[in-house]
């Protein structure tokens, strides 16, 4: 994959990440077992579906006082993926100029295993909420698919960019 193709893939991954963070990620459909119709009649707002994006989910964690979990999810679902893509963008630009991709790419690849934590957090959230009593259910929205696609695409990019020394630079060094 040449640097230009890498940059296009990185732009797509960043776009998907943006969609994954801002677009609806999951919708919670509350239910109250046998008395759901009655609750729907008397207090419809309790049974109204709630849709969350990842960022809204993080904000609600902060609002409800779950600061530690909120910070962890913010770091590994928002900050780290953006930083990782930034490092790859810089690496692609360096490769385009015949330079080594730089130490930061090796750092990112070392920390790469953490990038799956965001998927893990999402899965745990879904399982946790799906386990609610009363027939409440969670519907996964397209924002989650965009987020996962961004993660997978960034993994694919890392395979092509991963700390390789550019051939031009290598040849120059050998000379």
């Amino acid at each position: 994959m040449n640097p230009r193709q890498l940059q296009v893939c990185l732009a797509v991954a960043a776009g998907l990440l943006g969609l994954g963070l801002f677009a609806p990620c999951m919708t919670l459909h509350p239910a109250f077992g046998d008395i759901t119709p009655l609750v729907r009649l008397l207090k419809p707002d309790l049974t109204a579906p709630s849709t969350y994006s990842i960022l809204e989910g993080i904000r609600s964690m902060f609002d409800e006082g779950s600061i530690f979990i909120g910070v962890v999810v913010l770091l590994f679902s928002v900050v780290f993926p953006i930083w990782k893509l930034g490092v790859y963008f810089m690496a692609a630009a360096r490769r385009a100029r015949g330079l080594d991709t730089g130490a930061s790419v090796r750092w990112v690849n070392q920390l790469g295993k953490w990038s799956m934590l965001d998927v893990f957090v999402l899965a745990v959230l879904v399982v946790a909420i799906k386990g609610l009593p009363g027939g409440s259910r969670v519907a996964i929205e397209w924002g989650a698919a965009a987020f996962c696609a961004s993660v997978l695409l960034s993994i694919y990019i890392s395979l092509h960019i991963g700390g390789q020394r550019n051939s031009v630079a290598s040849e120059a060094a050998e000379d």
Binding site: A11, A14, G15, G18, I82, G86, F89, A93, L99, A172
Partner: peptide, 28 residues
């Protein structure tokens, strides 16, 4: 011939952030 080309601008680090913010602005 052996001189290294200049390093790219640090601006490249911020490109993904700008794209993410642009998507967020469109949503907003």
């Amino acid at each position: 011939s052996t001189e290294s080309p200049p390093a790219p601008s640090p601006f490249y680090y911020g490109v993904p952030l700008l794209i993410v913010l642009a998507v967020g602005a469109v949503f907003f």
